[in-house]
Amino acid sequence: MNTTESSSLYDNLEKMDIISLLVKINDEDKKVASAVEQQIKAIEALVEEIVPRMKKGGRLFYIGAGTSGRLGILDASECPPTYGVPHDWVVGIIAGGDTAIRKAVENAEDDPNQAWLDIQKFGINKEDTVIGIAASGTTPYVIGGVKAAKTAGLLTGCITCNSGSPLAKEVEFPIEVVVGPEFVTGSTRMKSGTAQKLVLNMISTTTMIKLGRVKGNKMVDMQLSNKKLVQRGTRMIMEATGVDENEAKDLLLKFGSVRTGVEAFFNKSTPGL
């Protein structure tokens, strides 16, 4: 039996009081970071391959079903506002299409051919990377997708929570974060989902940093989509240039990003530039 389907370490959950349930869920969650830590070298190996491909115009695709698919979409959708990159740099695809983001689509994950069809809608670039996300490592939609991608010459990786899964065997760079039985047996939206989210954070953040989308420790290319982000960007420019708040905000709004605002300030301040 797969670890993700093995029986919970706890029983008679319905008889526990609320504080006991919360403490025990938290106890299980504490195991996740340690499990991810054991896979850092595997994550590094995959990111080392992704970065040069994206520098050549490749894109990063996440494919998954259910919770795994939603986590991929979440990570992908945060890249444009956070790093100011085009929406097609990182793409999340879920079995069953956009409807499945909110509602389960019956049998969508059981078609081994659909993921590759979904990826092809974006066109194929030989520098693209496809990462299959499946806690069980047995989802036909995901396995079929990475298998077809690898056959087409794309880079393939996966994030799963079982060792030696069929999915891991089909990719070049498997990441297997084994977090143990779920608190509610088989509910992989819990520890497995948390582990997948942590790994996705690591992959996308590290990739974007190495692609030059962070300066120092700041999101200098973030989109200015609300007042909070305008205020954040203003503070960044103040810190980088020493100008007051009004001038910093003017630079930000005039040039559209922290990066270009700071560059414009120093170019203007330095004779001959």
Rank of each mutant, 00 (worst) to 15 (best):
I63D: 01
I63V: 15
G64P: 10
A65Q: 01
A65F: 04
A65K: 01
A65S: 09
G66E: 08
G66V: 12
G66P: 03
G66F: 12
G66D: 07
G66R: 08
G66M: 09
G66Q: 09
T67Q: 05
T67P: 01
T67I: 08
T67C: 02
T67K: 05
S68G: 10
S68A: 15
S68Y: 12
S68T: 13
S68K: 11
S68C: 12
G69Q: 10
G69A: 12
G69K: 08
G69N: 09
R70E: 10
L71H: 14
L71E: 14
G72D: 07
G72W: 10
G72L: 11
G72P: 07
G72N: 10
G72C: 13
G72V: 11
I73S: 03
I73R: 05
I73A: 12
I73L: 14
L74H: 07
D75E: 15
D75R: 11
D75Q: 14
D75T: 13
D75S: 15
A76Q: 11
A76D: 13
A76H: 12
A76T: 11
A76Y: 13
A76P: 10
S77Y: 03
S77F: 00
S77P: 00
S77D: 03
S77K: 00
E78V: 04
E78T: 01
E78A: 06
C79W: 01
C79Y: 00
C79E: 01
P80E: 07
P80W: 05
P80I: 04
P80N: 06
P81K: 04
P81N: 09
P81W: 08
T82Y: 11
T82A: 12
T82P: 11
Y83D: 04
Y83M: 07
G84Q: 03
G84A: 02
G84K: 02
V85L: 08
V85D: 02
V85P: 02
P86M: 00
P86G: 01
H87D: 15
H87S: 15
H87I: 13
H87L: 13
H87Q: 15
D88I: 01
D88H: 09
D88T: 05
W89M: 15
W89R: 10
W89D: 02
V90Y: 08
V90R: 02
V90E: 02
V90L: 09
V91C: 00
V91P: 01
V91A: 04
V91K: 05
G92P: 03
G92N: 06
G92Y: 06
G92T: 06
I93M: 09
I93R: 02
I93V: 14
I93T: 02
I93C: 05
I94Q: 04
I94T: 03
I94V: 14
I94S: 05
I94M: 10
A95G: 06
A95W: 07
A95C: 10
A95N: 06
A95D: 08
G96I: 12
G96S: 12
